[in-house]
Design a protein around this nucleic acid. Structure first.
Length: 561
RNA sequence: GCGCUCGUAGCUCAGCUGGAUAGAGUGUUGGAUUCCGGUUCCAAAGGUCGGAGGUUCGAAUCCUCUCGAGCGCACCA
């Protein structure tokens, strides 16, 4: 529709003397229904160019459009309003066509082709396997997966990747933590010590590292290893580390799967060392005079990228900092040929990723394909008060616990319903409420109610006839609902483009509201067969839009609740 | 001190590429229901869009300054 009008107006403008170079028409959907279905502000924009009043230009364009003339099956009327807006009213026959398109497309309605032939790699979660996923990881996981889903719906070939490092200090401490717990199983009389912050201490075996992991799962892993009967050499920290890694990864995988998330690949940071890629990068930086040796370390000249200070690439111990493998990893991803590389990071990475991107660019790679989605932190709220969370203490809430408490659908929706760059307040009381105050239930309820109507219609043999006369849908809540339903593809497209799933969540609420208005004004069952059939078709289309939209968000659309 | 993000109704937040009278939910107050699912619907009250300048035909939106909040500024990741 928009492209049709775009062509027509461009034709008219050409007859009026043309537009400035690079000029593009803009359309918008007016909030006020009196302003039609589609508005164009071209007259105001070109007032200076034509040296005429915006209203006059708008009138000229209108006259030009009517002389063409416009296709009456698409556009019913054109009006000039306000300071010079051109307001278009979509003709009802076009609405009925659009409704038929939805019904024909069924589960594919909402898919578009803009990403056809393109590929994207979305990297997310990427938590090192030191413990169960927490609520903090949840936002990352759901955001990443939903961005991946949105890209898929716009035609992209998408790969989901999990990046991790099992070789660092964190993991060594993890192994030592397990070993200490293991020793307590071997010798229950082992001396214990208190560890942790003042007033929040935990009793641990004497050999436990000061900054060890305090969660109960550590003892579980140690216990399993002990009970397995395997003879473990206490000096072999790596064995304990491996045991922990396996168990924790299995749990993370299960948690993700429960959320409807399936990773396509896991990328181990260590492979970058094994292949030697890392060291080659240093040589390349040095050749460009972007890296140098100082005080036994290798420094990256980040001042050349506008930073205040240079940063360390390789510590004097010979161990690289995270930047070096990160640069290597991104080069690897670029080399794999994806058209888009999306990273999902928490706000704590906000200052560091530019170093990586600039480093990659400096080495001559196409860093423009890399895109970073940053999200702010999550605060859990219970009974009106924030829930304190700390990974070290036993106070953090795991994703599984959260899902146990509020369910998978609610968990996903709550993480998605706010813009990524605002702090998210996750209200547990609201999330648990199965009522109208909970936005997920409102959407799912609308879907379930439609299914109920369809069931009821089938019971009384009022089958949906596929050739129902849709032109009987003339009530303003009916046409209003159709107009809302029509917007799904562009809404998904827009949300995908901006990597902002919350837009889609908000849109689905609008769909549910539009349906409720229709439902409140137009009965289906009990009406004459013609109108009833047409309305059943409309209800069916609404259910499709809700179901497909929720599917993009990874949320179920139950038939009964 | 420097960088990034945010500041919109009592609360939680939308607000698209600048566009017409700034919107939802929740809460408050009042109302509706023999009816396809009341897990519903309708209405009212509630705003200096943190503040000040600027750009523009037009600014919650863009720019500058300023105040406030969060996060980050390691030879941690």
């Amino acid at each position: 529709m928009q492209s049709y009008l775009n062509d027509q107006i461009t034709t008219v403008l050409a007859g009026m003397g043309g537009t400035p170079p690079g000029f593009e028409l803009e359309f918008q959907q007016p909030g006020n229904p009196d302003h039609g279905d589609l508005a164009c502000n071209v007259a105001m924009q070109l007032a200076r160019h034509f040296r005429k009043s915006p209203r006059q230009i708008a009138e000229d364009i209108k006259a030009g459009l009517e002389a063409l003339p416009l296709d009456a099956s698409k556009i019913e009327s054109v009006e000039v309003a306000g300071p010079g807006f051109l307001n278009f009213k979509i003709s009802s026959s076009h609405l009925f066509d659009a409704l038929q398109v939805i019904l024909d497309a069924e589960n594919a309605y909402g898919r578009t082709q803009s990403g056809e032939g393109k590929s994207a790699l979305v990297e997310f979660v990427s938590a090192n396997p030191t413990g169960p996923l927490t609520v903090g990881h949840g936002r990352n996981a759901v955001l990443g997966d939903t961005i991946a889903r949105m890209l898929e719906w716009t035609g992209y070939d998408v790969q989901r990747e999990y990046y991790f490092n099992d070789a660092g200090r964190q993991m060594r401490v993890l192994g030592e933590s397990v070993r200490a717990r293991y020793m307590a199983f071997q010798d229950p009389a082992i001396p214990m010590k208190m560890i942790g912050d003042e007033g929040d201490q935990v009793s641990v075996p004497e050999p436990f590292p000061e900054d060890g992991y305090l969660g109960e799962y550590i003892a579980d892993i140690a216990g399993e290893l002990f009970n397995s009967g395997e003879k473990v050499d206490l000096a072999d920290v790596d064995r304990f580390k491996r045991a922990a890694e396996e168990k924790i990864f299995a749990e993370i995988g299960a948690t993700l799967e429960r959320m409807g998330i399936n990773m396509d690949s896991y990328f181990n940071e260590r492979s970058l060392y094994d292949s030697g890629q890392i060291w080659a990068i240093i040589d390349r930086f040095k050749a460009l005079d972007l890296a140098y040796d100082k005080e036994g370390a290798v420094w990256l000249r980040t001042t050349a990228f506008g930073k205040e200070q240079d940063t360390v690439l390789v510590k004097s111990t010979g161990e690289p900092t995270y930047r070096l493998p990160d640069i290597g990893y991104h080069i690897d991803k670029l080399d794999r040929g994806y058209s888009k590389i999306v990273d999902v990071f928490g706000a704590d990475h906000i200052a560091t990723f530019p170093d990586v991107v600039e480093g990659v660019r400096a080495l001559g790679h196409d860093a423009d394909r890399i895109e970073v989605v940053i999200y702010q932190f999550v605060t859990l709220v219970r009974s009106g008060a924030p829930v304190k969370m700390s990974t070290r203490k036993a106070t953090y809430v795991t994703l599984d616990e959260l899902m146990d408490e509020v369910g998978e659908d609610v968990t996903r929706f709550f993480f998605l319903m706010r813009s990524p760059n605002t702090h998210l307040e996750f209200d547990l009381d609201l999330a648990k409420e199965a009522s109208d105050t909970n936005p997920v239930f409102y959407l799912q309820y609308a879907h379930a109610r439609i299914q109920s109507i369809l069931r009821k219609a089938a019971e009384i043999d009022m089958e949906v006839v596929s050739d129902a006369d849709l032109s009987l849908l003339v009530h303003e809540t009916e046409t209003g609902l159709i107009k809302t339903l029509m917007a799904l593809p562009e809404q998904i497209e827009r949300a995908a483009e901006l990597r902002e799933p919350h837009r889609l969540a908000n849109f689905l609420r609008e769909v549910a509201v539009a349906f409720t208005q229709f439902y409140g004004n137009c009965r289906i069952i009990g009406e004459p067969i013609g109108i009833a059939s047409a309305r059943l078709r409309l209800a069916t289309a609404t259910a499709l839009v809700l179901k497909n939209g929720l599917a993009v968000l990874g949320i179920s659309a139950p038939d009964r609740m």
